[in-house]
């Protein structure tokens, strides 16, 4: 465990807490893409299959449980909770995210470390995570104005991935056979998707203005 990875995990945890806080405090999920949240549930379930079979550390297991349960809780709130579900922008959140699922799964069948169930699921979860933010970014562009919490949510999601890329660079130079080309490529693609968001986020922060994404 190195500082970059710990910072990345903590930042990732913050994104989940921001969403839970927003939903709990405002009883509203406007501006949040249910599709992105559903993709994240798939990402965590597919990646943490080894939760009970491959113990790595208490920290690792605890964080896996936290990510899986919180992502499911967010989807539950947005789908079932009587107050919250009414505030979901159903007609705005129209990204056909099943194409992302199919594409990631096809890619995982082609490119994986070993052609085993667990490795294909792991690669699937890595590819899917790289594109999971797309429905959310599309929703933000559609709804134009971005409320603070949602803007911070996307910002921290991007920051978590930047920390992970630094972690992979660090591990590449400190560990011999550290070759995670799947994570590298997917992680770079994922971070690139945030690039324009970061740009507009920085501009709005600099001008101290409301975050406006070009439609």
């Amino acid at each position: 465990m190195n500082a970059f990875r710990l910072a990345g995990d903590m930042t990732h945890l913050i994104t989940v807490l921001i969403l839970l806080l927003k939903i709990y405090a405002t009883k509203s999920c406007s501006g949040i893409s249910l599709k992105t949240q559903e993709l994240y549930v798939m990402v965590f379930v597919a990646r943490y299959l080894d939760l009970f079979t491959n113990f790595i550390s208490v920290y690792n297991s605890v964080m896996k449980v936290v990510f899986v349960t919180s992502s499911i809780a967010i989807v539950w709130c947005m789908r079932i909770h009587p107050l919250v579900r009414r505030t979901y922008d159903k007609e705005q959140d129209t990204f056909r995210h099943y194409f992302l699922v199919a594409g990631s799964f096809g890619l995982a069948l082609l490119f994986n470390e070993n052609f085993t169930f667990r490795e294909v699921c792991w690669a699937f979860s890595i590819y899917l995570e790289a594109v999971a933010i797309l429905p959310q970014l599309v929703l933000l562009q559609r709804s134009g104005n971005v409320d603070n919490l949602t803007g911070q949510y996307v910002f921290f999601l991007g920051a978590y991935r930047v920390f992970y890329i630094l972690n992979w660079i660090y591990r590449y130079f400190t560990e011999k056979h550290f070759s995670r080309w799947i994570s590298w490529i997917a992680g770079l693609v994922q971070t690139a998707l945030y690039a324009d968001f970061f740009y507009y986020y920085f501009i709005s922060w600099k001008n101290n203005s409301k975050l406006q994404l070009p439609a």
Binding site: N54, S57, Y164, N167, S183
Partner: peptide, 10 residues
């Protein structure tokens, strides 16, 4: 940590 393809990252 662990064998090569054990994914020790979250």
């Amino acid at each position: 940590v662990g064998e090569k393809n054990s994914h020790d990252e979250l």
